[in-house]
């Protein structure tokens, strides 16, 4: 098992947002996390990244607890994170943004850059440009590229489809599947996305800070209640 979360509870000040969340991602697996805005998906990912400190429960990655680490130490353990809204460094070039993902002393910097560029040829063409001049899709690619520059064994993706046209989202998902074939486990948080369910093997559904159901993605797609509530499809 790659990542396992056991009965996690998280609060912002006095407001509890995660209740007893348990979840696991096996090595090499793609798992999606489905739920409405405010269901707690982002909070869960931020808890894994140690951006939010949690009260109870445990987060274990490759057999080691992540408790008490700083975010950059979680990154060093092999987990990378693509946040909602991308959060690139706006006054830096594309290449500099990617460079920031790699550690200071990085012998294989060029090969890391090359693998990002071969995944996203569109980014290669714009590597000298300032990140703020890119289109939404290109920014998303740079954000994923920056995360891949850390050479992760697990990738957390928050709301990849945000602001993207279905065509561009499709291209980004292809890249994610390609990354997964290279052995990177993936946890994909999305609201209302049938596509996310289709690329993943298993899925969890979150509701009001709790995991309300879990199962094989295919079974969830066929579940009429899930179809109606989360995929917006009325049979």
């Amino acid at each position: 098992m790659s990542l396992s979360i056991n009965s996690l509870s998280t609060s912002y000040a006095n407001l509890q947002v995660l209740w007893d969340v348990s979840l696991h991602v096996d090595k090499g697996e793609v798992v999606s996390l489905i739920g409405a805005n405010g269901a707690g998906k982002s909070t869960l990912l931020k808890s894994i990244m140690a951006i939010i400190r949690y009260r109870n429960g445990s987060i274990v990655f490759e057999g080691q607890s992540l408790k008490g680490l700083y975010p950059h130490q979680v990154v060093a353990r092999g987990i990378a994170y693509v946040p909602e809204g991308r959060r690139l460094f706006p006054s830096m070039s594309v290449e500099e943004n990617l460079r920031m993902g790699a550690p200071r002393k990085c012998e294989d910097l060029d090969s890391r850059l090359d693998s990002v560029f071969s995944l996203f040829p569109a980014v290669n063409a714009r590597k000298k440009q300032s990140a703020s001049t890119l289109s939404g899709g290109e920014q998303q690619m740079v954000a994923i590229g920056r995360a891949l520059m850390t050479k992760p064994r697990m990738l957390l993706l928050d709301e990849l489809s945000f602001g993207l046209s279905p065509k561009v989202f499709e291209r980004v998902l292809d890249a994610i599947e390609e990354t997964n074939h290279l052995g990177v486990s993936i946890l994909l948080a999305e609201q209302n996305s049938e596509r996310a369910l289709e690329v993943s093997k298993r899925a969890y559904i979150m509701e009001n800070g709790r995991i309300s159901s879990e199962g094989k993605s295919q079974e969830l797609i066929n579940d009429s209640r899930v179809r109606e509530a989360y995929l917006g499809i009325v049979d």
């Binding site: 951006i51 975010p71 950059h72 979680v74 060093a76 994170y81 920031m100 993902g101 995360a147 850390t150």
Partner: peptide, 8 residues
């Protein structure tokens, strides 16, 4: 925050 989860 983006710097932190870039590993800085």
């Amino acid at each position: 925050l983006a710097a932190e989860f870039s590993g800085i």
